[in-house]
Simulated assay, not measured.
Amino acid sequence: MAEESEFDPEEAEQKEIGREMVDDSTGLGSVAAHLYRGEMERTVEWRSRLDTTTNWAVTVTSAIVAYAFSGEVSHAVILAGLMMGTVFLFIEARRFRDYDIWRSRVRVLQENLFANALDPSKGIEQDAWRAELSADYRDPAPKLGYRAAFSHRLRRVYLPLMSAVLLGWVFHVWAFNPDDSFLEAAALPGIDGRIVVGAVAAYFVALLVLAVPHSSKERGESGSAEHADIDAE
């Protein structure tokens, strides 16, 4: 005959964790549902603003490169496109920090409230997340540093975009000045070609350095509750 396992009250209590949100007597389920819906709406709204910035960056830089190849236009126009892309990158990094505020709150609720409510046996709910979320509502602050946000958007969108613009610039310099060397063709009025090429090379080296992630949260967009306060400024 198999031995009966001893009843552990603490273990039984832990397995009930998360069910309070569906208990009609507490009303927590209704409050949590409305809270989650509101946070999701804000997340979607800021995600839309983020996508709008990306669309404008791609559209503007593409139009500038297309114009540069439309006739006898200086390759300086493409370099201006690089600068415009950089401006959009700074704007998008700032917007991504704002978006991450709402995204992080949604992930905290998903990981600590809904996951435990759906299957309380998979883990023990910790009280720390409630205190952190409460503090965040009292004093909202970005949870991602500007450098981290800059790096994330650079890797996801702007480094490939800038690389495409760079290829367009190289091809323009080479194709529109077949009789000159590359350094001679890259020259601008009053600026030696070596200086122009050196500046472009330094610009892309700086982008590559800034694109290196410094934390696990920078490597992905889904985020995690345990990394919510990484690189906050």
Rank of each mutant, 00 (worst) to 15 (best):
P189L: 07
Q14D: 14
S30L: 12
T54G: 00
V31A: 14
F150V: 03
A33I: 08
Q126Y: 09
T53N: 13
F96E: 04
S215G: 12
V73C: 11
A149M: 01
L35I: 11
G81K: 09
G85L: 03
I230Q: 13
G18A: 06
W56L: 14
P120G: 08
R130T: 09
Y99S: 01
A80P: 00
S5H: 05
S104W: 03
A164M: 06
R49P: 01
V58E: 12
G81Q: 07
Y146G: 10
F7Q: 09
G220K: 00
E20C: 11
K217V: 05
A117N: 15
L183G: 03
A131E: 11
E10R: 13
V209T: 11
Q14S: 12
G190W: 08
D179G: 12
L167V: 14
R103V: 01
V58L: 13
R153I: 08
L118S: 10
S121N: 08
T53V: 13
T53F: 07
P189M: 05
V196N: 03
V196A: 03
S151N: 06
F176V: 02
Y36I: 05
Y146D: 06
V212G: 04
V87P: 01
A187C: 07
A66H: 01
F96W: 14
R155P: 12
V157T: 14
D98T: 07
S216M: 11
D51I: 12
E72V: 09
L207Q: 13
Q126S: 15
A175T: 09
E10W: 11
V73E: 05
V44R: 03
A93L: 02
R37P: 02
P120L: 07
S30R: 10
D98V: 06
Y146C: 02
A128V: 14
V87A: 14
S70D: 08
F88K: 01
E218K: 00
K217I: 06
R219I: 08
W46P: 01
T53Y: 10
L161C: 05
A211N: 01
A32M: 15
